[in-house]
Simulated scan of single mutants.
Amino acid sequence: MKDRIVQLINSEGLTSSKFADTIGVQRSSISHILSGRNKPSLDFVQKIRRSFPHVNIDWVIFGEGEMYTSQEPTNLFENETIQFEKEEETPNITPQPPKLKKESPTKPVNQPESFSEMNVFVPGKQIEKVVVFYTDKTFREYNPS
């Protein structure tokens, strides 16, 4: 399975670090799997399946069939042309700036130093979804269910 994971990483044009980030595992986990120290867990395989739905999971696990479930390009936007509709001409209206509500100054909000310091657990409430935004303008959604 390790060799097929390497093949998948290369086919998707990723580094092992970017692959780890994409499927949501620690980079060391990928390193341990690729070095042969650890074998991929069921959770690891499920993360591959969620992150790469176009990959044939039977191929990943057993080496059966083709790598991809369809002949679609691996880059989902590779063969697409984006067309924009021409905007209709609007009458010459001077846009008005939005009216801002003036508020009295308040004390600055104390923001936590790190995620672990945030008190996100509220008694009697369940978390439905967590969205994490990264500095490279990407994001991941986590659903606990």
Rank of each mutant, 00 (worst) to 15 (best):
N143P: 01
F121A: 11
N75R: 10
I93M: 05
P105K: 07
K137H: 13
T74G: 14
I30K: 07
E103L: 14
R49V: 11
S41M: 06
F44I: 06
E117L: 05
H32F: 15
F121D: 13
R140A: 05
I30A: 14
E87V: 09
P105L: 10
N79P: 02
D58N: 06
K137C: 12
L42Q: 08
F139S: 15
I23F: 00
N38S: 14
L34A: 01
K137Q: 14
T135G: 10
E141P: 02
Y68S: 01
Q96D: 13
Q96R: 11
E64G: 07
P123D: 12
F19G: 08
V109N: 00
I48M: 05
E80K: 13
Y68W: 00
P95Y: 03
I82P: 06
Q83G: 09
E66Y: 03
V130R: 02
P105Y: 04
K125A: 10
L76K: 14
K86D: 13
V25S: 04
I48L: 02
S116C: 11
I127T: 05
K137D: 12
V109P: 06
N92A: 08
S28P: 04
R49M: 15
G63I: 12
I82F: 11
Y68P: 03
S104R: 08
V132H: 05
Q71M: 14
L76Q: 10
V131F: 04
N38K: 14
V131D: 09
S41P: 06
M67P: 05
F133G: 00
E141C: 05
F19R: 08
N119Y: 01
I61K: 09
F84E: 07
K39L: 06
N75E: 09
K125D: 03
K107H: 09
L100S: 10
E72G: 12
N119E: 14
S35N: 05
P40D: 00
T90K: 15
K86P: 10
N38A: 11
A20D: 03
L100R: 07
G124R: 02
E88N: 09
V130C: 08
T22K: 09
K47P: 00
F44D: 02
N119I: 15
E103N: 10
H54G: 12
F44M: 06
W59N: 05
K129A: 12
L100W: 05
G65C: 08
A20N: 01
V130Y: 03
Q111W: 02
P112Y: 04
K101S: 06
H54L: 10
E141N: 08
T94R: 06
K101H: 07
S114W: 09
L76G: 11
I61T: 08
K18C: 09
F139Q: 10
S17N: 13
L42C: 04
V109T: 15
Q111K: 13
E72Y: 14
Y142F: 10
I82R: 13
K107A: 06
E141R: 03
F62V: 08
S114Q: 05
R37W: 00
E89R: 03
K125H: 10
K101R: 12
P123S: 09
I127D: 13
V25L: 01
I127W: 15
F115E: 05
I61L: 13
V55S: 09
P40G: 01
P40L: 01
T138D: 02
Y142M: 06
G36W: 00
E117M: 08
